[in-house]
Every structure is written in C-alpha cells, then in structure tokens.
Design a protein around this nucleic acid. Structure first.
Ligand code: MN
Ligand code: MN
Ligand code: ZN
Ligand code: ZN
Lengths: 139, 139
DNA sequence: AGTATTTTGCAACAAAGTTGCATTCTACAG
DNA sequence: CTGTAGAATGCAACTTTGTTGCAAAATACT
C-alpha cells in the first residue's frame, strides 16, 4: 500500500484532502494518544477549526476514539484495525495516563473486565482509565 | 445534627462561609453528579470564580470527587462517608452516564474489578465509566 | 469588640470551542 | 480532459470555559 492514510480515508468513504492525510499521518506516527493541542502543533499549517471538524469526522467514522481523562482534557487515538472494520466502534482496552510524563497510552493487551450493572441499566460503552507511572518514567 | 453542610466543613477544618454551605447543600440535595455549569445555575448568587475555587477546595479535602466523561465535561459528586474520613481519596465504584437523560450517577454498589497492568506500570488511581440507558429512562 | 487571616467578587485576561459564510478543493460525470 | 456540483477549508466573529491579581468583605480567634 502506497499511503496508509489514503487507504484509511478510502475505506471510510471520505474524500482525500491534504489536511485529513496530514492529521492521519500525525496519528500514525504518534506512539501515544494526542490532545487537540498536540495535533494543532504537529499540523500547524491547518486552521484550528479544520482540526476540530476533522477530528469530529474521524470520530463519526470510527477512525479514532476518545479517551476520557481526569483533568478535563480529551485525548484522541487511532482505533485498531478490527475496531475500524467492524462498522461501529467498540474499544475494549484499558487506557493509561502517566502522572509524570503526561503521556496517554492505549494498553491494547489489557482488556476491560466485565461488570454487572444494577437492574434496569443497560450498557452501551465502557471506559477504564488508569493513572500512575508508566514504564518509561519508572526505568 | 443541625446542619449537615456545616458539619462536613467542620470535620474538614474549613471555615464556614455561606457559599461553601450553599454549594454543599446543592450536592446534598442532588441525586446525580453535577457539572460546573449545573452548580453555577443552582448557586447563582455566587460568583463563577468562587465556585471554581470552592470546588477545588472540596477536591483537595476529599469532600467531592471528579468523574471523567467521554464528552469532555467533568462531573463532580460527593464522596461517600468512608471516602471522606479515610484521609486520602479512594473512589472505587463505577460511574454511569445515561446517554438519554444525560445524568451521571455513582453506582456505589458496583466495585471496579481489579486488572493486571503490563510490567513496569504502576497504578495510582483507576476510573471506570459506563455509558448507556439508566433505570429511569428505561422504564 | 478588635484584628490577623481567609474568602469573596470583580475586572481583566487567556484558552477552548462554535458558527456562518465566502473561497477553494475534490470527485465524478460527460 | 474539462466542467461542475457538492464537500471541505479558512477566516472572522463570537461564546463558553477557566485563570489571575487585587481590593473589599467575612470569618475565626484572642
Ligand atoms: Mn485506545
Ligand atoms: Mn462517585
Ligand atoms: Zn510516563
Ligand atoms: Zn437516563
């Protein structure tokens, strides 16, 4: 495949534009989840509004997912392949926030355990976020 | 006990002021977690800045806790009694966000299950948030 | 009651997010 | 390969959210 970003856009039936490619490239080369501000800096040739709208589009198509954090900053990360291809989004891994370096990580190997809700409640989505010290900061 | 709000303030060694009492009363009579904006409306005789500072004070003392949400709005809720009295905060129950009515609830009876992190990661705090339809909306 | 200390309100500001609209770009038909 | 409809973008203006410094007011304590 010549261009990974383009192929993601194609399989989501999105038109291929330079800003979308750039923002996808930013995600593809990032090792962590990104805040809106991170993306603004890494794709600073594009307008802030365009980034807002592009992220929303990617969320709608299930290309990226959000990670809720305790400090009122949303982080965004690429969905894994099967997450994208399966039509609707189902993110079932735990997320980790390092209190020291501030990085947010998808722990793709750590599944969210099942829980039992009280009677009358139905679950659509579940998120598990762990704060602590990451591998790199620990070393 | 004459006044629950006052007694909470006293046991946290905070001076008793009318805004703190009012904001505590708002929490005490709320059945759900509250956004900052909710509190602004329910205690609208006080300045927005005072509410920011009061919530921060309550967080510092472990009187309230935050609930991270997927839509970038922090919700605040009273901590349970043992949560307050034990000195430092340890919130170990699941939170529920209703996609229909928008309410955020502490599921005090649903404990967060344990997970195993990859080698090198240490856990300080854990949050579990479930989205779905709540009991009241289901009925 | 008097006073040191804390808390509050206000103003000014900074940052984050939204909206309408004119311009530019993309996909696609012909 | 063009022409064009529709989509995406940039810009400006705006709203909302959160922060800071400081003077005035309130609280706790002597
Ligand atoms: Mn993830
Ligand atoms: Mn709670
Ligand atoms: Zn770290
Ligand atoms: Zn509901």
């Amino acid at each position: 495949m010549v261009n990974q970003a383009e192929s993601i856009l194609k399989s989501s039936a999105l038109s291929i534009t330079s800003s979308r490619k750039k923002i996808l490239d930013v995600f593809l080369s990032a090792s962590t989840a990104l805040a809106h501000q991170d993306i603004e800096k890494l794709a600073d040739q594009y307008d802030r509004v365009t980034i807002y709208r592009t992220l929303q589009t990617f969320l709608d198509r299930g290309i990226i997912h959000t990670i809720p954090t305790t400090d009122n900053t949303i982080k965004y990360a690429l969905c894994s392949d099967d997450c994208i291809s399966s039509g609707h989004h189902h993110d079932n891994h735990v997320h980790f926030l390092c209190d020291q370096c501030g990085r947010t990580l998808c722990l793709d190997d750590v599944m969210i355990p099942a829980i039992t809700l009280p009677n009358g409640y139905s679950m659509k989505e579940i998120n598990m976020v762990v704060n602590g010290i990451c591998k790199l900061c620990r070393a």
